[in-house]
Simulated assay, not measured.
Amino acid sequence: MTDGGGRSVMEGAFALLGAVERAGEAGPTRLAAECGLPKTTAYRLLEQLVDLGAVERSRGGYRMGPLVFRLGRSWQPYPGLRAAARAPARRLARLTGAAVALNVLREGQTLVLDWTPGDDVGAIGGLQDGAAFPWFTAAGKVLVAGAHPRTLKGPLPAAWQREAEAIRERGAAFDREGVASGVCCVAVALHGPTGAPLASLSLVTDPEHSLDRLVGAVQQTGRIISAALRGR
């Protein structure tokens, strides 16, 4: 069954969901144009998504609904990952006063699964559940350094091999305002039963704090979470 635009109804619905996510809030005309759908088809699918709770009506047209929020919060790349990380991440945030995030690498981006705010809210740099950042954040680099070299599509930077070796040797990746001004980060990989990196734990703070002093606490927390993932 097609939606009138030469694609399946499911493809059309997911295309609209993607368009709503990118826009934040938009009307059916704009969403239909972005997805290449007839306006009547887009409107019909959007109303069906409203009935399901996937999107909701707003003054500007449509925006994401509560169903997508609930489903998104339940996603994790490995069973028990969120549960294993939750308490240790909160303890780390209390100990350091910095924001702490649980991250995964997907489609060339660093995705934030969960985050715990620190004392300095201004230092988190847009950190929130579901936020996406380039792979070359500390949280992404520590995963790429420990994963298969073909994890990312396209060529890696010329100096990457040397940087990856330094990350593996130190057991952590650092970002000192390399992605966002005023935001510094240290990240470690979280390992599953096979030893493969499943996710990363990152601590985000401001340039006033020394990452070299904080890295030990982040590494210890990472070991606790990895041990829990291995059932120990």
Rank of each mutant, 00 (worst) to 15 (best):
G4T: 13
G5K: 09
G5V: 04
R7W: 11
S8A: 12
L17N: 05
G18H: 13
A19Y: 10
A23M: 09
P28A: 14
L31Y: 04
G36T: 03
G36N: 07
P38V: 03
P38L: 06
P38R: 03
Y43K: 13
Y43M: 12
Q48Y: 01
V50C: 11
V50T: 07
G53Y: 06
G53R: 08
V55E: 05
E56C: 00
P66L: 10
P88Q: 09
R91M: 07
L92D: 01
A93S: 14
A93Q: 08
L102R: 02
N103Y: 05
N103V: 08
R106K: 10
E107T: 11
E107V: 11
Q109M: 14
V112A: 10
L113K: 06
L113C: 05
D114I: 06
W115R: 12
G118S: 01
D119M: 14
D120M: 09
I124H: 15
L127E: 09
P134E: 09
F136C: 14
A138D: 11
G140T: 02
G140Y: 12
A147M: 15
T151L: 15
L152Q: 13
P157R: 13
A159T: 15
A159K: 15
W160V: 04
Q161V: 09
R170D: 08
G171L: 12
A172M: 05
E177I: 03
G178R: 14
C184N: 13
C185Q: 04
A187K: 00
A189M: 08
A189Q: 05
G192L: 11
P197H: 00
L203Y: 08
L211P: 01
L211S: 07
L211K: 05
D212C: 02
R213Y: 00
V215R: 07
Q220M: 08
I224A: 14
I225W: 03
A228M: 11
L229R: 11
L229G: 08
